[in-house]
């Protein structure tokens, strides 16, 4: 690592008057400014990743001292575990449903908030209301929705009054409902970030594009398809990939609403890995799962970086 050497040598450099400095020291100055960052990332990012990869090829790690090399045994164990495979499936559904809904809601709300028909005060008030869900921590969001979606809770009461359901549904404990319930809560919690970014992007679209389209006699929908969407495309793509990545990291919401149950119906890769480590104390298996999660994320991150390059 060429980066660790300059740390000490440049610490005093900026205080020394310019002309007495050698060229070498001057070249090392930027590394000096970067050294705290590099140190932190090496110790708390690079080393842990190497460690977890190491664990994943061994057995009896962390809890016992005499760990042995196990080859790909942990990976075989994880990849043939039916609950891992269902966690993979649930995660895929959860992140794609959440991201699609975040995009649709975020775009719809951003366009309404950007409407030229409304006054500034109306927009400002609605903007704050719309951002609200994003300002609550996941622990609070989990508690709110456990209250709202309780069998005796207000959501069930409203649905019963409207005649849509016969009796109170236990959304988080019904295996056929739980995955949709956590996805719904995650949709509620996460659309504002999309909305804020899309609102900024909408305000950045040059007005004359719309004027030119209006002169051509286009209607609202045609302008949306031919002007708005193409202009927003780069932001939409990078936000969508980012959201897929972030949603796949979601642990707290699942852990505090369903814990992965009932019957593994909301088990995600994150909760599966956590349980292997901190409930089963199978740190080696958990490490293999953690490395698989990392690899899957890297695939998404690759698309993110590529979408950034295209812009």
């Amino acid at each position: 690592m060429t980066l660790t050497a300059p740390e000490t040598s440049t610490r005093a450099a900026p205080a020394v008057p310019g002309r007495s400095r050698s060229t070498l020291t001057r070249r090392l100055v930027p590394y000096g400014y970067l050294s705290p960052t590099v140190l932190l990332i090496v110790v708390l990012m690079v080393v842990p990743i190497v460690m977890v990869i190491g664990y994943s090829f061994r057995d009896n790690v962390i809890v016992q001292e005499n760990s042995v090399f196990a080859g790909f045994a942990n990976y075989t164990k994880v990849l043939t575990d039916p609950s891992f495979l269902s966690a993979l499936k649930n995660t895929a559904i959860f992140i794609s449903v959440s991201t699609a809904a975040h995009l649709v809601l975020g775009l719809a709300f951003a366009m309404m908030l950007n409407s030229p028909l409304l006054g500034g005060v109306t927009k400002a008030i609605f903007r704050i209301v719309y951002i609200l869900p994003w300002l609550f921590t996941i622990a609070v969001i989990a508690v709110i929705w456990r209250l709202l979606l309780d069998p005796a809770g207000v959501v069930n009461h409203v649905l019963q009054t409207l005649g849509l359901i016969e009796q109170g549904v236990n959304w988080f404990s019904d295996p056929s409902m739980a995955l949709w319930a956590v996805s719904f809560v995650n949709i509620w919690a996460g659309y504002p970030f999309f909305m804020i970014s899309l609102l900024a992007a909408l305000q950045g679209i040059p007005g004359d594009l719309y004027e030119a389209a209006a002169v051509d006699g286009t209607n609202w929908f045609q302008r949306f398809v031919h002007v708005t969407l193409p202009q927003l495309r780069p932001v939409i793509i990078s936000m969508a990939v980012l959201d897929l990545i972030w949603t796949s990291h979601q642990f707290a919401l699942i852990w505090m609403t369903t814990g992965g149950g009932p019957l593994n119906s909301t088990e995600m890769l994150s909760t599966f890995t956590y349980k292997q480590a901190f409930s089963e104390y199978e740190f080696a298996t958990a490490s293999a799962a953690a490395v698989i999660v990392l690899l899957l994320t890297m695939v998404l991150a690759f698309f993110y970086v590529r979408s950034q390059r295209e812009r």
Binding site: M45, V47, P48, M51, V52, S248, H249, V291, V293, L300
Partner: peptide, 13 residues
């Protein structure tokens, strides 16, 4: 992009 769940196991150690 690194998942927190990947880091939490080595962090523990």
């Amino acid at each position: 992009a690194v998942p927190p769940i990947t880091l939490v196991i080595p962090y523990f150690g």
